[in-house]
Simulated assay, not measured.
Amino acid sequence: MQTPQVVVVGSANADLVLDIDHRPAPGETVIGSDVVTTPGGKGANQAVAAGKVGGAVAFVGCVGDDDHGALLRDSLSSAGVDLTDLRTVDAPTGTATIMVTPDGENSIIVSPGANRHVTPAMLEETRSSWGAAPVVVLQLEIPVESVAVVATGARGRVVVNAAPAARLGSAVLAAADPLVVNESEAAFLLEDAGAAAGPADDTGATARALLRLGPRSVVLTLGAAGAVVAETRRADADRPSDDVRVGDEVPPADDAAEVVRVPALRVEAVDTTGAGDSFVGALAVELAAGATLERAVRLATRVAAVAVTRRGAQTSFPTLEELERAATQLQDRESGR
């Protein structure tokens, strides 16, 4: 197996998916479809997405000794993910109950289970996996203190997907390159910091406001509208990437920070479950290959566009061959050919 270039540290869940006509109001009972169980969890999703687009990927996390744990191991292995540091612990595998409405949107309730065992102590034991990896990917379905251990201890580039929304310390924000958030997660971080987001229709202003919180770069995802990339000058810009260290002084972002909008392919969404994770996984692989952040986001938006046209999370993620075929078909459809 190749030496991992991307190491994902995070959650692994069994997704319990059911279709509903509408989201229930308080006190309301709705009838849903039969439950379909599929592999998921933000961390495992991102690792699978990265593996499917050709990345050399390892996953660090925890599952239980149960059928759900076996399901996740099989899915990760099938995508070529290195599972050396996927631990089996004395707890049930995490689950996510996902309700999907006819427009393809979803509501999710997560029960962490074994993911609570991704502790700072466990991560110190697995430091040889993530400590020197070129790109490390984090999300927030594991304890926030564990996220901090990896973000501040990794020597490579750290991608922080601040989802689900939670308070992040300044050290984690300073390590993020990029910080990846959607609009609701961005609003949470800015409100928590007492910072103004700018006009609701000015996503560039929101991205700049996020930069002022301290990350080295920002990717603001906008669903069907694509994404916004914001970067400011880095103190380590003229040094080899191996010399980058968390804590280097970085000039504050200002209104002159470079902001680029990357459009998404127009598709008919069937199920948005895992789309953001497919985006992050593909982004990490491109960054590990040396791509600029903008170029990495362009690939990531294409991967996410294909993913939302299929059901499920990991089962919807395309391989590179599938991505190329689907992207060509979508572009031909848009141009009317």
Rank of each mutant, 00 (worst) to 15 (best):
L72M: 03
R302P: 06
P164T: 02
L83N: 06
P92W: 01
D242T: 14
S11V: 09
D271N: 11
P164L: 00
P26H: 13
R127K: 14
V60W: 00
P102R: 04
A79K: 08
A163Q: 02
C62A: 14
S316D: 11
E124T: 12
V9R: 10
E191S: 14
R295I: 02
D248M: 11
A176C: 05
A154S: 13
D21F: 03
V30P: 10
G32Q: 02
T126G: 07
V118G: 03
A171D: 14
V150C: 08
G32M: 11
V118S: 05
E145D: 15
T301F: 09
D192A: 15
P215D: 01
A289Q: 09
T273F: 08
A91C: 07
V89A: 09
V135P: 12
G55W: 06
A133R: 05
A225R: 15
V159M: 03
T203H: 14
V229R: 03
T101A: 15
D65Y: 08
S278G: 15
L330Y: 12
M122N: 09
T309C: 13
P39N: 06
V285L: 05
G94D: 06
P251M: 09
A193V: 07
A14V: 01
P143T: 13
R302D: 15
A200Q: 08
E124Y: 00
A175N: 03
A91P: 03
V81Y: 06
E321C: 04
G274L: 05
D66T: 03
G312S: 11
T315M: 03
G69P: 13
D243T: 15
E268N: 06
D21Q: 14
G156A: 12
R245D: 04
P92I: 00
S75P: 03
D192H: 14
L173R: 11
R127Q: 14
L83Q: 12
P120A: 12
S33D: 06
A230M: 04
P112L: 01
A197T: 07
R234I: 01
R208P: 02
T272G: 02
A187Q: 07
A166L: 09
V244G: 00
